[in-house]
């Protein structure tokens, strides 16, 4: 019996989620890291002057998210690397697109687990500032940014799976490639926070990069997996 695309996708998602729940440390570490970084930022900046509150908010939000998510993405294949599970997966009649989408769904989920608390905490720290923190556009920008970062994370995690010095190599590739997404996210968020026009222009660029990275992910994942 040929397994269906959806059954394989769902099977991989639920297994990945269960495997991560069984090893909660891996799940919680990026969030704890993000909270620590945010606290440090706020101790360092102390009182932020009125004119630059928006800039500081977006800098804190996206830098913290970027660093914390890098920790999540680099570990996305850790459960599959135990006991040569990854090799066995390669030997199964597994649809590569289902495999990619399952990893992508999990990455998106872990990204939300970091991004939402970071956003709320940032909102709390800047509650006295005249910023439009609860605007739907700001949250949409955040969502679009993690959609792009997640695809990039999965692709680079697969690419560096068997590389020596993986922990070093991953950020070296991830940070430069994340620049377009980061730049568009920061500009769009800043625009929505301070009610300055131009936010949607940056959102368009962000969506464009998301589409490019996602297409690359779907097309390249199978090649990367078989090359490992």
């Amino acid at each position: 019996m040929k397994p269906s695309f959806f059954s394989q996708y769902w099977c991989m998602v639920s297994q990945g989620w269960k495997a991560d729940l069984a090893d909660k440390e891996r799940l919680i570490t990026p969030l704890l890291f993000a909270i620590t970084v945010l606290l440090l930022f706020n101790f360092c900046f102390e009182e932020v002057s009125k004119g630059i509150e928006g800039q500081v908010f977006t800098a804190e939000l996206y830098l913290t998210t970027l660093f914390a998510l890098q920790m999540s993405y680099v570990r996305i294949f850790v459960p599959d690397q135990q006991d040569k599970v990854f090799s066995l997966l390669q030997s199964y009649p597994l649809n590569y697109s289902a495999w990619f989408l399952s990893k992508y769904t999990l990455a998106l989920l872990y990204s939300l687990l970091v991004f939402v608390p970071v956003m709320l905490l940032c909102g709390l720290f800047f509650s006295g500032a005249d910023l439009n923190i609860w605007s739907a556009e700001l949250w949409l920008g955040g969502l679009l940014s993690i959609i792009g970062l997640s695809t990039l994370g999965i692709l680079l995690s697969t690419l560096t799976l068997k590389a020596s010095g993986r922990e070093m190599l991953f950020p070296l590739l991830y940070f430069p490639l994340a620049v377009p997404v980061l730049l568009a996210s920061v500009q769009a968020s800043l625009s929505f926070l301070t009610s300055v026009p131009g936010g949607w222009h940056w959102m368009g660029i962000l969506a464009g990069f998301d589409i490019i990275y996602f297409t690359l992910g779907v097309l390249l994942f199978g090649e990367l997996v078989t090359a490992v």
């Binding site: 397994p3 090893d23 006991d83 090799s87 066995l88 997966l89 199964y92």
Partner: peptide, 25 residues
């Protein structure tokens, strides 16, 4: 495989068996 069994070590036996069976359809 010779040196490994391809099992999710943090998970239980039934979960492991069910996962690999479902993946095969």
């Amino acid at each position: 495989s010779a040196e490994a069994n391809g099992l999710y070590t943090k998970m239980d036996a039934i979960d492991n068996l069910r996962f690999w069976c479902t993946l095969r359809g």
